[in-house]
Design a binder for these strands. Structure first.
Lengths: 245, 245
DNA sequence: GATAACCAAGTTGCCTGACAAGTACGGTTT
DNA sequence: AAACCGTACTTGTCAGGCAACTTGGTTATC
């Protein structure tokens, strides 16, 4: 495993990256499936045919079809062929956040994040263990310590929310909100970077955190949900400020 | 950005399909990344090295790495190599529902479904158009018609909820709840198949639908959320009955 | 001596051709 | 008519090779 010394030179994938042939072919086939020209259970053209139709080699076709298989859209049997999978039976879900810079898109993401986090907070309020509570309290204190040190506390902020979500014991909540959180909060982080009003705002955020924590301690699900919702709503509002500049 | 430890790549024993080499290799590499032996920004071994290390041909390595690229875990630049992607920057999320028969897993799924649908219903109540409302009403009537014909109305049930979700205009709500819905409701459908108490229950369900619809019409977000929550909670309870038998 | 142009090795992207393993279908045999 | 079998077809895998691109060091130039 050779280490790359120039870590700052992380390749920018989003822009400038020419899509590979397999990528474009996979996209076209996906379109073909979505359009309904190929129905569930039907057989796809053979790799040979596909390679001729689209003018690429068979390994490329294999790679493209392999992705569809990976995403649960097709199934293949050696010797028989590849078949369109029944969407009802598909067990994988794929979420693509393509154009994150788009403001409408960001709003949609935040809405989903709010739905998940508010519900998770509610659940945690009604079924947390003592150990869960101790962890959450520790994160809350760390956030305060970061603020006292004059830092933004964004990382501690994330950790606090994550502790709450983890306490639900629901891996789907955990994974989904971790993903959404990362997307939204890295956005916030970069947006905040040039801001001067950092210190005061962090303390306001902390106050909202305290309200959430108190409701959890009191085992008050409704209150916890409400506190989480206002917190997230405020966060979205604060975010909007930076978006408009 | 991957959601699950129970990767579907390894034990695809569902239909007896032996996992392909590319599948298993992809799973091993994924493990390698998740374990942290390879950190973000580092370069992966070359395809040549990988093919020697794991004793497979280079096309197989390409296919495996291609899946990691597809899932946003790896980025590659022609001539330079393949690099571990920064999870923070990853823009794809993958949700794997591997062992759906597991009861705990089903509960987690239902919890997520409830979170998404309740929030979506709330949003629709506060910002629906007349056209949205007309569509939802149509679905409600179709459900009633199905019940009057003595059918279970499961399809119409799904369509009703889907109309509400669509009205939010949030594609992430739509896609996610469609996926979860499909998983849960096909389960319900098969569970219900042998049940005799079908007719009466369908009418009860319809009553809950009516409550949701009324709250939406009244543009009462809180009421809509509450109605949706009770409906989903009841649905989960009804489901539990069939699970326990 | 510092800087710019350049070259060679290494790497991924893609291709052709081939063989093995498994499947489907039609013809043959019983 | 039913069971059997062989052949063509399809996917899974491998080997080797060329083109495009990146990188780092070397050489040429000022």
């Amino acid at each position: 495993m050779v280490a790359d010394k120039r870590r700052s030179e992380q390749p920018r994938d989003v822009l400038g990256r020419a899509p590979s042939l397999a990528d474009t072919l996979a996209a076209r086939l996906r379109e073909e499936l979505a359009s309904g020209r190929l129905k569930a259970g039907e057989r796809l053209p053979t790799e040979q045919q596909l390679s001729q139709t689209y003018g690429v080699s068979r390994p490329i076709v294999r790679e493209a079809v392999g992705r569809l298989k990976h995403d649960g859209l097709v199934l293949s049997r050696q010797g028989a062929g590849a078949f369109v999978a029944d969407p009802k039976a598909s067990s994988v879900f794929r979420l693509d956040v393509a154009n994150f810079s788009d403001k409408g898109d960001l709003r949609h993401i935040v809405e989903l994040l709010m739905a998940v986090e508010a519900s998770a907070t509610e659940h945690t309020a009604e079924r947390h263990s003592d150990a869960d509570l101790a962890t959450i309290r520790a994160r809350l204190n760390e956030m305060q310590a970061a603020i006292d040190r004059g830092e933004s506390g964004v990382d501690e902020d994330v950790a606090f929310h994550r502790a709450i979500i983890d306490a639900t014991g629901n891996p789907y909540f955990r994974d989904l909100s971790e993903f959404l959180d990362r997307r939204v909060r890295t956005f916030i982080r970069t947006a905040r970077a040039n801001s001067a009003r950092l210190a005061g705002m962090a303390q306001i955020v902390q106050g909202e955190h305290q309200a959430i924590f108190d409701a959890i301690v009191a085992r008050d699900p409704q209150g916890a949900r409400a506190a989480a919702e206002t917190h997230l709503k405020n966060a979205a509002a604060r975010l909007a400020i930076y978006l408009d500049r």
